[in-house]
Simulated assay, not measured.
Amino acid sequence: MTSQYTLQHRIHDLEEATCHEERLYKILEVYMDLYPVMNAYLFRFSPLGFLGEGIILLTSDGMVHIGDIRDDIRSLPIIYSSINDKKAKYCSGIEYLKQTSSKYITSSSVNSIVVVPICFRSVIIGYICTTEFAKESVIDDKLLSLLTLYGKEVGKFLEKFDSVEDPQVLSKRELEVMRRIAWGESTKEMADSMEISELTVKQYVKTAIKKLGVQNRSHAIGELFRRGILS
Rank of each mutant, 00 (worst) to 15 (best):
S112E: 14
A88S: 08
S109I: 06
C91L: 13
E159Y: 08
E29R: 09
Y150N: 00
S193M: 10
K160W: 13
S186D: 06
C19R: 07
Y90F: 15
D162W: 04
G93K: 07
L97M: 13
R179Y: 09
A208G: 08
K103L: 08
E153C: 10
E165D: 08
K26W: 07
Y80F: 15
A220C: 05
S171K: 10
A208S: 15
A88R: 00
H219I: 04
A208P: 05
E153I: 11
A182N: 12
D71C: 05
K86W: 09
I196P: 03
A220Q: 05
W183A: 13
Y35T: 00
N39E: 02
L143P: 00
H20K: 07
G184H: 15
E21N: 10
D85W: 09
G62T: 08
I118D: 01
K87H: 09
F120M: 12
Q4D: 11
E15W: 15
T200Y: 13
T131W: 02
L175D: 01
V214F: 02
E174V: 04
T207H: 13
L224K: 01
C19G: 12
K206V: 07
P77F: 06
T130M: 06
E165M: 10
P167N: 09
L149N: 07
I11Y: 05
K188T: 14
V114D: 02
G49S: 12
T59G: 03
F161S: 06
H9G: 09
D162R: 07
A220Y: 01
L42M: 15
D85M: 11
Q168Y: 11
F45Y: 15
G126S: 04
R121H: 08
S109A: 12
K89D: 10
V169I: 15
V214W: 02
G54K: 04
I55P: 01
N111Q: 12
K86P: 06
A191D: 04
S145D: 13
M194N: 11
L212R: 00
L158R: 02
D71R: 11
F157K: 01
A191Y: 05
L57K: 04
M194I: 15
A88C: 09
K135C: 12
I113A: 12
Y5Q: 05
T106P: 03
K210D: 09
S163V: 12
D140C: 11
M32Q: 03
E176C: 06
H9P: 07
D33E: 15
T100Y: 00
F133R: 00
L34W: 06
L230F: 06
A17E: 01
S107K: 07
L144A: 09
I66V: 13
L48N: 03
L147H: 00
Q8S: 11
Y150L: 02
L76C: 04
L58C: 05
E153S: 15
K156L: 07
G151R: 00
S231T: 14
S231V: 08
S92A: 11
K89T: 07
T148E: 05
